[in-house]
Design a protein around this nucleic acid. Structure first.
Length: 383
DNA sequence: CACTGTTTAGTTGGTA
DNA sequence: TACCAACTAAACAGTG
């Protein structure tokens, strides 16, 4: 069974000669014997895994001691997506979001020091742009970020994205505009600047089933309109579709769309996506008002995404008890700090990764380089 | 002018 | 195989 995700090194023609993608360009999605991970919905891309991409010696699967999950789960309560698990077995040994509970997490690593380990650090993360954006927004204190802050967050966390910025940033912008799960929040007058804030749509909470941030099971489509697609189409003169991207065959999707092609339906770019004629959800970000600031409107939530918990009853804490969400290797749990721990116990033992903490900036700007945790202790400590 | 945001178009890969 | 999610490129407009 393949158990890693291709790192897509091939898609970097301009890096071809750099040596970044020598041979081990992959993130091991599940080097953990808990093979169930790989059967998790949304866990895709495994078929791309080329065996030679993997180096069994490199992987850190066994660096997860028994009981780690419990400890980790207790330590990290993910503030954010309801689909994310409060319990997070750490498949990577240590992720940036993980506290260094286990110093021995790297104990397995160095049976055979390999010179090419560094290549991990610039491998393409297995997360989609939508995932990255979602994560960035989720972990921000205000639950919304400017475009540039999103850029910075991604670059801080993933050195990979310090390269070819024009390309992926264009994709980020496209994702923000194109996907209904992101909404634009106008700047308040006291925060002048360029561009709006971007937040997650209140109902976008379960885009990533089981907390897996690799690929959404279905595209989020705004509105509680299971049958609004027609109306949307009608309200889109000149547009090929009318509604936003289709989310599937429609039969099993609560957000059943009607458009035929992902690109056939275009939105007009109205802020907060109020352009489709459907009433906006009763969410704070719904009014394009300078006061529309999620943080202000959800002052009492810190560790749970306010939007999600208020708008998606099925994601409320009770839900966790009855139906504990699946803990996924690519869960944001494994990537993010719990905010308070974050501040008290920043990870910075591997400054070599050039993720200078940008204290004073948005919470998004923290030294949480993905690789610090993912491969930091277990792989990068070999010198 | 650079950045931001929208839109169109094409491609690739996963899944039913 | 069709459909869909995601990625990429690019054109274009608006804005600070």
């Amino acid at each position: 069974m393949l158990s890693a995700v291709k790192m897509e090194g091939h898609e970097l023609p301009d890096w071809s000669g750099s040596g970044y993608y020598g041979e081990t360009e992959c993130y091991t999605a599940n080097m953990n014997p808990i093979s169930g991970y790989m059967s998790a919905p949304g866990m895709t891309g495994t078929s791309h895994m080329n065996a030679h991409y993997m180096n069994p010696v490199e992987v850190t699967h066994s660096s997860v001691p028994a009981g780690m999950a419990q400890i980790h789960g207790a330590a990290v309560q993910t503030p954010g997506l309801g689909s994310m698990s409060p319990i997070s077995p750490p498949p990577y040994g240590n992720m940036p979001g993980m506290r260094p509970v286990y110093g021995q997490a790297c104990s397995i690593r160095s049976r055979e020091p390999k010179p090419y380990r560094r290549s991990y650090t610039h491998a393409k993360p297995p997360y989609s742009y939508i995932s990255l954006i979602s994560m960035a927004i989720q972990q921000s204190g205000s639950k919304m970020l400017t475009l540039n802050e999103i850029y910075q967050w991604i670059m801080d966390l993933f050195p990979f994205y310090r390269q070819n910025q024009q390309r992926w940033q264009n994709s980020i912008r496209h994702s923000l505009s194109f996907n209904d799960c992101f909404i634009k929040v106008p700047r308040s007058p006291d925060k002048p600047g360029k561009g709006s804030f971007w937040a997650l749509h209140p109902d976008s909470g379960n885009m990533f089933e089981n907390g897996c941030y690799l690929r959404r099971q279905k595209r989020f489509k705004s509105g509680k309109k299971a049958g609004n697609a027609d109306k949307e189409a009608a309200g889109k003169p000149g547009s090929g579709g009318g509604s936003v991207t289709s989310t599937g065959s429609g039969s099993d999707s609560p957000q059943s769309p009607s458009s035929s092609s992902p690109h056939s339906s275009k939105r007009t770019g109205v802020e907060l996506k109020a352009h489709r004629g459907e009433p906006l959800p009763p969410s704070p970000v719904r009014a394009p008002s300078p006061l529309a600031h999620p943080q202000h409107l959800f002052p009492h939530h810190h560790h749970h995404h306010p939007l999600l918990l208020q708008e998606a009853p099925h994601l409320k804490p009770d839900h966790y008890h009855l139906h504990p969400p699946f803990s996924h290797p690519f869960s944001i749990n494994n990537l993010m700090f719990e905010p308070q721990q974050h501040k008290l116990e920043p990870l910075a033992p591997y400054g070599g990764y050039g993720c200078p903490a940008k204290s004073g900036l948005d919470p998004a700007h923290s030294d949480t380089s993905y690789y610090h945790g993912v491969y930091g202790r277990s792989l990068m400590n070999s010198t």
